[in-house]
Write a protein that binds this DNA or RNA. Structure first.
Lengths: 187, 187
DNA sequence: CGGTTAAGTCACCAACCGTTGACTTGGAGG
DNA sequence: CCTCCAAGTCAACGGTTGGTGACTTAACCG
């Protein structure tokens, strides 16, 4: 555990941001109070406002994150699905920002729009480049499965999906991703 | 429109319940106030408490609903997927209870558990009976895709999924449902 | 027509929330 | 050691919320 320097503004700010990520990821925007977060850090609620301006601004910073998807052009569709799912598991399991945003998106229009933009700017292009046609439609279908998995496994905690390993899920869902990207959609 | 008898307790109660369903479905539990609902009906907030006891009890009643899935034993897997999706669209599009529950499940443990129980008591058995093996696992996979579709189409409003018709979505996603249930490879 | 009772209203409470501004404290530099 | 400024605390505000209880009103019945 890193020695926390007392009376260090950047350290305190970072600690507040970390606590906010955890809280927002666990309970969502509305159910978390500034007093909660300040209490976790052991600091006065006024500090939160001092460093972040408002609860909304704090949430915006806490739920910001980057998918950092690699360039996948030229890869075989099966490989695309695999690489993608590996990356998603990484993001989901050690970046509370995504869970925060998804939880908030369920009840907040601005959060929903933010998530939509994240998807269309970062994820959809990569997916679309691997699609045989109708890139937007196919990317959206893949997204629905990916999001459904995240919701079921990390929010609802559906027991079978929680019990399965990442590898198992990849082998089960990967073919579906590939199918959405390459399968025939017209008869 | 049915003539609303003034000073009729059952009618007022029903009107409050309807307004609650709409509000909870649109904005989620936390962002809706008793005063909002009462305002929609044009009634005093105290009436809401009088008839339902508390906000939680009102939500429980407003978000209660029944899947009413028919018995599907013996049907071909493709038919199972189709029947299922038709039923889901019906529930989603004219019963705000489901959306209420899903939105609430994103941030409330009790709502998440309620949704989980609804799935495991009403949906999973039917799905499991159509699976070739590992009924719980296969049902959960189907559930993740179904839930992801609902989230993307009705909450996030992903444009391509909103634009598609029910029939189109059935032909695109149906084969995936069948695949999850039977393990059959796509052609 | 008058009275009884349920339906509906009103004022209000206690708790909690985000946010603010004035105050206090600690620690580094001269 | 003293000074000074950033870091941190404190008390309080205005507003909102779920919930309560006493009051008022309307409609049915004898």
């Amino acid at each position: 555990m890193p020695e926390i320097r007392r009376r260090s503004a950047p350290a305190t700010r970072a600690a507040i941001l970390d606590a906010a990520r955890v809280r927002f990821g666990a309970d969502g925007f509305d159910r978390v109070t500034i007093r909660d977060i300040a209490g976790d850090v052991g600091v006065d609620p006024a500090m939160v406002i001092r460093y972040f301006g408002s609860k909304d601004a704090l949430f915006a910073e806490a739920s910001a994150f980057d998918m950092e998807l690699p360039d996948l052009t030229g890869l075989a569709p099966e490989a695309v699905a695999d690489v993608l799912m590996v990356r998603f598991f990484d993001v989901w399991e050690d970046n509370a920002g995504f869970l925060s945003l998804m939880r908030a998106a369920a009840t907040s229009k601005v959060a929903a729009d933010k998530m939509l933009e994240l998807f269309s700017r970062q994820v959809a292009p990569v997916l679309g480049s691997a699609a045989v046609d109708r890139p937007a439609d196919r990317a959206a279908l893949v997204g629905s499965q990916i999001l459904g998995l995240a919701l079921s496994r990390y929010v609802l905690r559906v027991p079978p999906l929680v019990a399965m390993s990442q590898e198992e899920l990849r082998t089960l869902i990967g073919p579906v991703i590939t199918h959405y990207l390459t399968g025939k959609v017209f008869e």
